[in-house]
Design a binder for these strands. Structure first.
Lengths: 250, 250
DNA sequence: GCTAGATGTTGCCGCTACGTCAACTTCAAG
DNA sequence: CTTGAAGTTGACGTAGCGGCAACATCTAGC
C-alpha cells in the first residue's frame, strides 16, 4: 500500500513540508516518485520516519539522526546517545546557572530602585576578561567562580561591586601621600582587595602575587586600574606582594 | 578617547565581526564613523556594549536586548527578565526529561542486545498524535504525561508497549465470537486498556467514555485500532462505556 | 617614495530545520 | 468543464554571527 505525502503527514504528525525537506536532504526518500513528481511512501519508510522522529525528539540534529540510522551498529548508536546525553546535561546545568543569574539580576533591579540602569549594570562588573579568563584558566575555574557568586549575601555583592574601586581610590590617595606599601593603612586596603578577590576565587600566596604582576603586565588592567598611572599599578602590585608574603599561606 | 574596532573587540572579548553585526542591526552604533568607513567607539559605547553582553549572556535574543536597553523603564526590564526566567526554567525541565529519555533509550539498547534496531524503536510506540495532543489538551497535560513515564517500572513500560495491541487483538477475537461487551472476558480486557491508559493519564469516567467516542470519531484512530473494521472500534467504545459506568468514579 | 603587512571596509554565502508564500500542475468529483 | 483539494518546485526568511573574497587604507621600514 502506497501512502501519499499528506497521509503520511497526518499519521505522523509532521507537515508535508517536513517530509519534502527530509527527501531533499536525503534523510527519508519516498518509496516511489511518480512521473508527475508525487511522492509515495511504503511501510518501510513509515518505520524509518518513526525512527527519525524518535531520535529527533531526543534532541539530535538531523545530520546525526541520519548517521545513527545509517550505521545500524548498536554500539555506535549508544556512543552517540551517550555523548548527546552529556551535552544535554551540560546544557541543563548551564541553563540552571542562567536562571540563578537572571534571578540575581531581577533582585538587583528590584532592590536598587533608585539606581539608574547604568549603575545597575555597572554594578555587575561584568568583566570583559571573561573570554580570556576561560582560555587561561579553563571553563571550570570560571564556572566555579560563577558558582560562587550564587552564594553571595547582599553584603558580598556590595563588596564585589564597589570593593575594587574603593581599593584603587584609597591606594591612589595613600601613594600620593608617599605612604610605603608596608604600612598598615595600605595593607588594610589590600586586605579588602584580597577579600573581594576571594569572592571570585581563593588565590594561594603565589597566585595572589601573580595576579599583582598580571595587573602590571596587562595593559588593559593597567588602563583600568591606574587610568594611565602605571606607577599606581606597580604600587598595587608591590603592596599585594607584601600582603601575600606576610599573610597568605604558601 | 576613541577606540578602534579591534581594540574594542579585544577588550570585550567579542570579534570585530560581531561589532560590525551589532552596528548593522543598529544595536550598537559607533560613536563616529570616519569618512573612510572606519568605526570608532567611545566610553559610552563601551558601557552599552557591556550591557548588551550581559543581557545576551543571560540568554536574551538581541532583539529583546535592544528593547530592554531602549526602554530604560526598570519595571519593563524586570517583566522581561521574569518572563525569560520562566522560559529558562521550562527549557531546563525539558532538557531534564530529554536526559531521562536518552538514558532510557540507551538502557533499552544495551539490554535488548538481540533485538533488531527496528524492534527497539518500535518498542517506543512513539505516538504520532503528540502534536495534536498538545493542541487539544495543552502542553501541560502532555508534559505531565511524559513526567509520568519517568516513574515507570520495566513492567509498566512493557505494558505500555504491548498493552494496547493485546487489547485490540483480544477484542477482535471476542467480537468475532459474538461475545457481548458486558461479558467479563471483554471487561477484563478493557480493564487492561484502562490500566495502560492510566500509565499516561488518569481519565475520569466521562473522560474515559469520551476517549472511546474519540476512537470512533477520529479516522486515524479507527484505522489504527480497527485496521478498517469500524465495527470493532465501536465495539471497543461500547465496552469502554460499560466499563466506565460500572467501575469508574464520576 | 615605495612596498609589505596589519587593519579596516563592504558584500555574500553558510549554518538548522523547516514555515511560508508564489506560481503552477494534477487529480477526483459534480 | 469547472471547481476545489492536493500536489509540485523554487525562493526567501529565520538568529547570530563565521568565514570567505575583493578592495581600501594606514603604518613602518628601507
Amino acid at each position: 500500500m502506497a501512502w501519499s505525502i499528506a497521509q503520511v503527514a497526518r499519521s505522523s504528525g509532521v507537515t508535508s513540508r517536513t517530509l519534502r525537506h527530509y527527501h531533499s536532504i536525503g534523510l527519508l526518500v519516498p518509496a516511489r516518485v511518480a512521473p508527475n513528481g508525487r511522492r509515495y511512501y511504503e511501510q518501510e519508510q513509515l518505520l524509518r520516519l518513526q525512527q527519525i522522529l524518535l531520535l529527533r525528539d531526543l534532541g539530535l540534529s538531523l545530520d546525526v539522526v541520519g548517521e545513527v540510522i545509517a550505521h545500524r551498529d548498536e554500539q555506535d548508536a549508544i556512543k552517540v546517545l551517550a555523548k548527546h546525553k552529556e551535552w544535554l546535561v551540560k546544557e541543563q546545568l548551564r541553563l540552571g546557572r542562567l536562571v540563578q543569574t537572571v534571578d540575581a539580576t531581577i533582585d538587583n533591579l528590584k532592590r536598587g530602585g533608585e539606581m539608574s540602569p547604568e549603575k545597575v549594570f555597572e554594578g555587575f562588573e561584568r568583566n570583559p576578561y571573561e573570554a580570556e579568563a576561560r582560555e587561561r584558566w579553563g571553563d571550570e575555574a570560571v564556572d566555579a567562580s560563577y558558582q560562587r557568586m550564587r552564594g553571595w549575601t547582599e553584603a558580598d555583592a556590595e563588596k564585589a561591586r564597589t570593593g575594587y574601586v574603593r581599593v584603587h581610590e584609597g591606594l591612589a590617595a595613600l601613594k600620593a601621600e608617599g605612604v610605603a606599601v608596608t604600612e598598615l593603612s595600605v595593607q588594610e586596603l589590600i586586605q579588602l582587595h584580597y577579600e573581594v578577590t576571594c569572592l571570585f576565587w581563593t588565590p594561594t600566596r603565589e597566585a595572589y602575587k601573580g595576579l599583582g604582576q598580571m595587573y602590571v603586565d596587562d595593559e588593559r588592567f593597567r588602563q583600568n586600574i591606574g587610568s594611565g598611572d602605571d606607577a599606581l599599578v606597580e604600587y598595587l602590585r608591590d603592596a599585594m606582594t607584601v600582603y601575600a608574603d606576610t599573610k597568605l599561606d604558601g
